[in-house]
Deep mutational scan, measured.
Amino acid sequence: EDGINLEEIREFAKNFKIRRLSLGLTQTQVGQALTATEGPAYSQSAICRFEKLDITPKSAQKLKPVLEKWLNEAELRNQEGQQNLMEFVG
Rank of each mutant, 00 (worst) to 15 (best):
E1Q: 01
E1V: 03
G3D: 15
G3Y: 12
G3K: 15
G3R: 14
I4P: 06
N5A: 07
N5Y: 08
E7N: 03
E7Y: 05
E8Y: 04
E8K: 04
I9N: 00
R10V: 11
R10F: 11
E11R: 05
E11T: 05
E11Q: 08
F12P: 04
A13D: 00
A13Q: 07
K14G: 01
K14I: 10
K14Q: 08
N15Y: 11
N15M: 12
N15Q: 13
F16H: 00
F16K: 08
K17F: 00
K17S: 02
K17E: 02
I18F: 10
I18H: 10
I18G: 07
R20G: 00
R20V: 01
L21K: 15
L21C: 09
L21H: 09
L21M: 14
L21I: 14
S22N: 15
S22M: 10
L23D: 04
G24C: 00
L25N: 04
L25S: 03
L25Y: 11
T26D: 06
Q27R: 13
Q27M: 12
T28P: 06
Q29M: 06
Q29R: 02
Q29Y: 06
V30Y: 00
V30K: 00
V30L: 03
V30A: 05
V30P: 06
G31E: 06
G31K: 04
A33W: 12
A33H: 09
L34G: 01
T35Q: 11
T35W: 07
E38M: 15
E38N: 09
E38L: 12
E38A: 12
G39K: 02
G39L: 01
G39R: 00
G39T: 01
P40C: 08
A41D: 14
A41L: 10
A41H: 07
S43E: 05
S43I: 07
S43L: 00
Q44I: 03
Q44R: 13
Q44E: 15
S45M: 13
S45C: 06
A46H: 09
A46I: 11
C48Y: 06
R49A: 14
F50S: 04
F50I: 03
E51K: 00
K52S: 14
L53F: 14
L53K: 02
D54I: 09
D54F: 13
I55P: 03
I55A: 07
I55G: 05
P57L: 14
P57C: 06
K58L: 10
K58P: 08
K58Q: 15
S59A: 14
A60D: 01
Q61S: 14
Q61I: 13
K62N: 04
K62C: 14
L63G: 04
K64E: 04
K64T: 08
K64P: 06
V66I: 09
V66L: 05
V66R: 08
L67R: 03
K69I: 05
K69N: 10
W70V: 04
W70C: 03
W70S: 03
N72E: 12
N72K: 12
E73T: 06
E73C: 02
A74W: 06
A74I: 01
E75A: 04
R77V: 11
R77F: 10
R77K: 14
N78G: 11
N78D: 11
Q79N: 15
Q79A: 14
E80D: 08
Q82W: 07
Q82P: 11
Q82F: 05
Q82L: 07
Q83T: 13
Q83I: 08
Q83L: 08
Q83N: 15
Q83M: 10
N84C: 14
L85T: 12
L85E: 10
L85D: 15
M86D: 14
M86W: 10
M86R: 13
M86I: 10
E87A: 07
E87G: 10
E87Q: 09
F88L: 08
F88W: 15
F88Q: 15
V89L: 11
V89P: 07
G90V: 02
G90E: 07
